[in-house]
Each structure stands twice: as structure tokens, then as C-alpha cells.
Design a protein around this nucleic acid. Structure first.
Length: 534
RNA sequence: GGGCCUGUAGCUCAGUCAGGUAGAGCAUCCGGCUUUUAACCGGACGGUCGCGGGUUCGAACCCCGUCAGGCCCGCCA
């Protein structure tokens, strides 16, 4: 059973109506890691729907969180906003400075600035959650009831946090963070509580009162989270391992939640995604691949597959090089499998059966829309990469794949070609996939050459000097260089690839050579002969 | 200090919850396709399941211990 179905099954035991939640703080550029949060929730939702449950899938935007520091991509001007809620401060402009004009005119907040493109990417990838903005929820009174309970039961909450997290809270700790005279959540000391007012004194020496029913502050994270579960009615939430550890915010949250009179949601802890060789992704260090950037390179199904095929507790190492190639090819392979037939095979071991079922599940979860039908294009990523690099026009790519003006390629394939061309142009294309002619051969390349190979190479040069310089004639010239001395054409290809590209196999050579000047090719072969003789 | 996750073929991983002959893909090698789409088809190679105990007729799987890597117990997906 697919992992999402396992979770759905657990939910089915608890009831028919479920609110599945996800949540992110838009404090900077979104990255692939955030996609795991959302897609894990999305996949559980889909599985739950398939199981016949009534599902509401939500995405809580934590725009009530404060700006922690001036991140490297921000201008120093932002230091005035440290501690301020990211839904209530201006977005950065192209220089990283606060854009006051857009903020006052269009209301574009810091949080919205990072959120909007992410939501756009989510649509592309087939995820359309109900959005709940935290700041608005506080201001509109959604937190009233739970906030009151939290403040009334401050001692109980303190006990839970201190016991479960084994962390001692400060003496003046209080389960409500008021906004200070400047609008910051930092450096404020709570001096008293008299519902609905929390009295405070800030770092500037100013004293005031925060009305908890008007969103003049917020609950600290460890209380804010279970508070959301309670007023929204969350029954299931997937969260990163940082929250899942013993003593972490889920552990305290599940108890605090019950204080609010609500049962804690079904948890699912997921591992992080790291960038190969560079450690965990982090918005603040700039070590990221954005979902938007990734979607420019590959179709959304493939990004979904990345999340779907790995169990949540597996760490994922991602990169936009060979990992992407393998992932994309894996996707095509899945599409072309005949699962029905595989499942009817005799003597199917339990192990094998599980494997097939998981593959079916992963493929199902990779669909952008649950209803869409999947069809195999029978064109692998590698192959398309090759065609995109060697053909000079799209038409030539299509005709190579057997399409014509009457039998046009499907739009999904056209889209893939366009993405492929972007990938080839980008810095992400691995050297391994790049087609290149080696102009300066080295002796190392010819260590497998014997007398026959050298003879063929000399004949190849003669053939290429003589033939018409077009794809067809070059295509004949290569095998002929071996045939004339009654050797297998295989040797001729081996010799040609080694000499021109430094590898023993490769893509169809003739069309590539036809695009290059004859003189350059002849010169390379001459150099090869010199190197071999040296 | 306390806790969580991971460790299975050269690589990426499935299989661990419900113990029953160790699996896939990639890579490599060989063969086929009488002149190659890095294609396609067939085959081969490849593992003391981190290590040591225990339970069991039987353990990758359950239990105890141990080693290694990652992470959490301020904030972070």
C-alpha cells in the first residue's frame, strides 16, 4: 500500500470528516523542501478522498510570525522591522529594500511577496488548498476562544512545555506575545493579564495593553500550532522532523491541544530534502532550488513523483543534474508498465506484489489532476535531451520521433521539449548529458585502439574527405571505412565516437557531423593520428 | 544528557508495521537488432541485509546491545 493510503486508512478508523493541514512561514524564497510539506498533505488528502472520506485540505500561511533577522537577500533597512509580523511589513524591492510605495498602494506585504509565486507553482503542480492566513485569523477573532484558554491556563501550559521539552521557561513567560509600541513582538515583557487585555512593557520603556481578541499580538509557536488545530478542527497534519522530535512542538502541542478541548491530529513526520553535496536547503543561506525554477525544467508530474515515490521518513537528496534525469526516466518507465498484467502473474511473492502496488500508488499520486489519464510518450528524458541538442529545429525532433504535420505530437510532449531546451541552456545540464566534440584529443582516449582501429581511422579520414558533406553520405562513409577492409561497422562507430567525442558510444553521429564544418572534423582526425603515433 | 530517523548489490532505493527461498531501476559486461535514437530486445555479473547476541522450526523483519551518519530537545518544511 502506498504511504498516503496507509495514513488515509488510519484516518478512516477515526471518522469520515477530515481537515488535513499544512503550514509554512513565508519568510523568504520558497524551495523544494516546502514542496514536500504541501505535497505530503496533498497526497494524504487524495488518498483519503479515494477512501471515501470527506476531506478539506488547507494551507496555513504563518504570516503572523515575526521577521527574525535581516536575511542576506535583504537590505539593512529591514533592521527596523525585526520582530514585526511578516504579513504587516512591506515586501522587498529588486534591491532588497522595503518597498513602501507598493505596500501602501497595493498592500503587498513581505509575506505575500514570497507567497504568491509559490501558490502559482502549486496550481501548476495540481495542488489547490484552502488558504488560511494566520495574521488575518488573529485580527478577525478566530483565535479568541483558544487565546483566552491559553492565557487563563498559563500555568498548565507552562507545566506542559517545561515537562515535555525539558526546557525551563523564564519567570515572566506568558502564553501571549503582545505587539509593542513599534509593532514588534521582540523584547516585550508581560506585566499582567486582565481578559481581554495583556499588559506589557516594551524595550523602549513604553507600557501598554494588548487586546487578545483583536490580534494585537499572537500566541507563541508552541501554543499557536495546537490553537490552530483546535479552532480549525485539524484532524491530520504532516510536518517536518524538526517538529516531530521528542520534546518538539508536536509533543507539547498534542497536550496543549487537549487543554483546548480538541484531540491532536494524526501526525506524519517527514524528512528533509537536501541539495546533493550542499546539505539541507535553507532560504536564508540561499542554498535553494525554487519550485518555480524546478517547474521550468521538468513537468510537474516529475516533481510530484519525487515526493510520491519516497516514503516521508526517507531523506531525499535532490539535484537538478543526473538525479533529475533518472527521476524523469523513472517516470516514463512507470508509465509504460502494464501493472494489470504484472499483478496477474503466477507465483507473485508478497514482496513483489507490494512493490507493484507501491509503484501504482506512486504513479497515481504523480498525476497533476486525479482525473487526468496518463499516457506514455515513450520518449525518455535522455532521448529528448539528445534530440534537443542535435536537431536544429523542433520539426526535425518531431519527425525523428515519428510525428508529422498530420500526426502532431501531444501538447505534453511539446511542453517537455520546451522545458528540455531551457534545461540544456541552463547551468543544470550535467556534463554527462552534454554532447560535445573534442577538438584536442589526448592519448588516453586511444588506449583501447589496436592496429585494426588505427587502420579504420585512417580510412575514415579518407572517406570523410571524399564524400558529400550531408547527413546521408556521412552516414555511409562511417561504416564504409570498416567495410572496405571487411571489418564490422561496429568498429567504425567505435573509432569515430572515440576520436571525435572521447567515448565508445553515442548518439547518431552523421546528423551531428553534418552540422559541423568538414575541415574541423578532418583536422581532429589528423590530430588523433598524430597523438596515436606519438 | 534524553529522544527520533537512517544503514540492504558499485549507485538510488523497495521489502521491516502483519517473520516463510534476498528484490527493482541505474551503472557495468556479453549477445541480438547484417550501417547505433546514449534507443530497443535478451542475458550475465553483482549482497556476511552496519556489527554482536537473543527469541523462533525459520529473522533484513521481532527483542537487547553496539557502531556509523543525519536530526531534534531556541527558530526552521
Amino acid at each position: 500500500m502506498h504511504w498516503a493510503d496507509v495514513t488515509a486508512q488510519a484516518l478512516a478508523h477515526k471518522g469520515n470528516k477530515h481537515i488535513i493541514s499544512t503550514g509554512i512561514t513565508p519568510s523568504g524564497e520558497f524551495h523544494i523542501g516546502h514542496l514536500r510539506e504541501i505535497l505530503t498533505g496533498d497526497m494524504i488528502s487524495r488518498a483519503a478522498k479515494n477512501a471515501g472520506l470527506d476531506v478539506d485540505f488547507i494551507f496555513i500561511v504563518d504570516d503572523a510570525d515575526p521577521l527574525r533577522k535581516v536575511y542576506p537577500f535583504l537590505h539593512d533597512d529591514y533592521s527596523q522591522f525585526i520582530g514585526h509580523q511578516i504579513g504587516s511589513i512591506p515586501a522587498p524591492d529588486e534591491n532588497g529594500k522595503p518597498d513602501f510605495e507598493k505596500f501602501s498602494k497595493d498592500g503587498l506585504s513581505y509575506a505575500d511577496y514570497f507567497l504568491s509565486p509559490f501558490l502559482e507553482a502549486l496550481r501548476t503542480i495540481g495542488v489547490v488548498p484552502r488558504i488560511i492566513k494566520n495574521l488575518h485569523s488573529y485580527r478577525s477573532g478566530a483565535f479568541n476562544e483558544v487565546s483566552k484558554i491559553a492565557c487563563d491556563k498559563a500555568d498548565d501550559i507552562r507545566e506542559i512545555i517545561e515537562r515535555v521539552s525539558t526546557r525551563e521557561l523564564a519567570g515572566d513567560w506568558f502564553p501571549w506575545s503582545p505587539l509593542d509600541s513599534k509593532g514588534s513582538l521582540e523584547g516585550v515583557v508581560v506585566t499582567g493579564y486582565d481578559y481581554p487585555l495583556v499588559h506589557w512593557k516594551d524595550s523602549h520603556g513604553v507600557e501598554g495593553s494588548s487586546d487578545i481578541t483583536k490580534g494585537e499580538g499572537k500566541l507563541p509557536w508552541r501554543i499557536d500550532w495546537p490553537a490552530k488545530w483546535s479552532w480549525i478542527g485539524v484532524t491530520c497534519e504532516a510536518f517536518g522532523k524538526d517538529h516531530g522530535a521528542a520534546g518538539g512542538s508536536y509533543a507539547t502541542g498534542r497536550e496543549i491541544c487537549q487543554l483546548f478541548g480538541h484531540q491532536p491530529p494524526q501526525p506524519l513526520t517527514y524528512e528533509w530534502i537536501s541539495l546533493k553535496g550542499q546539505g539541507a536547503m535553507s532560504s536564508s543561506t540561499g542554498n535553494t532550488i525554487g519550485p518555480i525554477e524546478a517547474l521550468e525544467l521538468v513537468p510537474p508530474e516529475i516533481l510530484r513523483l519525487l515526493i510520491a515515490q519516497s516514503k516521508p521518513n526517507k531523506a531525499i537528496e535532490f539535484d537538478t543534474g543526473m538525479s533529475l534525469v533518472n527521476l524523469a526516466d523513472e517516470y516514463e518507465r512507470l508509465l509504460s508498465r502494464n501493472f494489470d498484467q504484472e499483478l496477474t502473474e503466477q507465483d507473485l511473492s508478497r514482496r513483489k506484489k507490494v512493490q507493484i502496488e507501491d509503484a501504482i500508488g506512486a504513479l497515481k499520486m504523480s498525476k497533476v489532476s486525479p482525473e487526468s489519464t496518463l499516457e506514455s510518450s515513450n520518449v525518455t528524458f535522455r532521448h529528448l535531451c539528445l534530440l534537443a541538442q542535435t536537431k536544429t529545429s523542433d520539426e526535425m525532433v518531431w519527425s525523428s520521433l515519428g510525428y508529422s504535420s498530420t500526426d502532431k505530437p501531444p501538447t505534453s510532449l511539446v511542453d517537455r521539449l520546451n522545458k528540455m531546451k531551457l534545461w540544456i541552456k541552463s547551468k543544470h545540464l550535467p556534463e554527462e548529458m552534454r554532447i560535445s566534440i573534442i577538438d584536442n584529443p589526448e592519448l588516453e582516449m586511444f588506449k583501447e585502439f589496436g592496429d585494426e582501429e588505427i587502420k579504420v581511422l585512417k580510412l575514415l579520414k579518407e572517406e570523410l574527405e571524399r564524400c558529400e558533406w550531408n547527413s546521408e553520405d556521412i552516414g555511409n562513409a562511417i561504416p564504409n571505412s570498416a567495410k572496405t577492409i571487411e571489418l564490422s561497422p561496429r568498429i567504425a562507430y567505435f573509432v569515430a565516437y572515440k576520436s571525435l567525442m572521447g567515448r565508445s558510444r553515442g548518439p547518431r553521429l552523421a546528423p551531428i557531423l553534418a552540422e559541423i564544418e568538414r575541415e574541423r572534423i578532418i583536422k581532429i582526425i589528423e590530430k588523433c593520428l598524430i597523438v596515436i603515433n606519438s
